[in-house]
């Protein structure tokens, strides 16, 4: 593998309002330093893609943003959300995760009915009115472009859905919570191309209301759907810029090599 100077990086300042910012974020798995000094701002109502080779730390970085790395890794530094450092031990992580939702690589609906998959976490947040629950159910399934396919089978098991439908159900389940930020960890990597394009269309609609951060190792996908792209290498954010610039006018040699396929 080519050696790059990892102390150099190009991190753009975004003109948009910030949904999330990280300041000097470090992640350690035991003695293994996995993320070095991550400083970047995620824009509101945009899609930001995190790209990089396997093991570069993009998923680790993403999972810090709603504290999913608690008990797994040690995370130092600040993650600012609405002027609050959500990486502080005093923060109620359950509340953080209600504001910052997450969708995983493999679809993971609960072994419950489609309706319960969405309503059960909502009830947990204290919503009791049946009308509101039903409204959110429909709204979120429409938002995830799944409503027309399942509206007659809401009491059927979620496990009977296809992989692509399950993943859209997981997106619906997340957006039903009305989060601010949606984190997606390679949401389409286990799906066929048709389901993938459905999910991509869904994300384009969702970004009107949500700030989306997506990890992907599909470069075409990143260039198709995202507004900003961050390229990570060996735990360092090497370059962060608008997607057009990252793919057409990369500032760093490593980024250039990676997006043009000359990497490694």
């Amino acid at each position: 593998m080519k050696e790059y100077n990892l102390n150099e990086s190009y991190i753009t300042d975004i003109p948009e309002k910030k949904a999330l910012s990280t300041k000097n974020l470090q992640v350690y798995y035991g003695d293994n330093h996995a993320i070095f000094d991550a400083n970047m701002d995620f824009p509101r109502y945009k899609i930001t893609a995190l790209i990089g080779a396997s093991g570069c730390g993009k998923s680790t970085f993403l999972r810090c943003l709603n504290r999913m790395n608690d008990k797994v890794a040690r995370v130092d530094g600040n993650i600012m959300y609405r002027n609050v450092d959500i990486n502080s031990p005093k923060i109620n992580v359950y509340e953080v995760r209600q504001h910052i939702g997450m969708v995983f690589q493999r679809p993971n609906p609960f072994a419950k009915s489609i309706r319960e998959n969405i309503i059960f976490p909502l009830r947990n947040t204290g919503i009791k009115s049946n009308d509101e629950l039903e409204e959110r159910l429909e709204q979120s399934l429409r938002g995830a472009a799944l409503w027309d396919e399942v509206k007659d089978d809401l009491n059927k098991s979620a496990l009977a859905l296809s992989g692509g439908q399950q993943q859209r159900l997981c997106i619906a389940r997340s957006i039903a919570m009305h989060p601010d930020v949606l984190l997606l960890d390679e949401p389409a990597s286990a799906l066929d191309p048709i389901s993938t394009s459905k999910i991509e269309e869904t994300l384009q609609i969702l970004k009107k209301d949500y700030s989306i951060i997506i990890v992907t190792h599909n470069l075409q996908q990143a260039s198709r759907i995202s507004d900003y792209t961050a390229f990570l290498h060996l735990g360092h954010i090497v370059e962060y810029n608008s997607t057009a610039n990252v793919f057409t006018k990369p500032k760093m040699q490593a980024t250039d090599d990676y997006v043009s396929g000359n990497f490694g």
Binding site: M68, Q98, G101, M102, V103, F110, N124, S174, M177
Partner: peptide, 18 residues
């Protein structure tokens, strides 16, 4: 029970007990 189920619960703000 697959760990994915636990992560799903956690990511929706459910407590460990729930």
């Amino acid at each position: 029970v697959p760990n994915l189920q636990r992560e799903a619960g956690m990511s929706l703000g459910l407590s460990n007990w729930k």
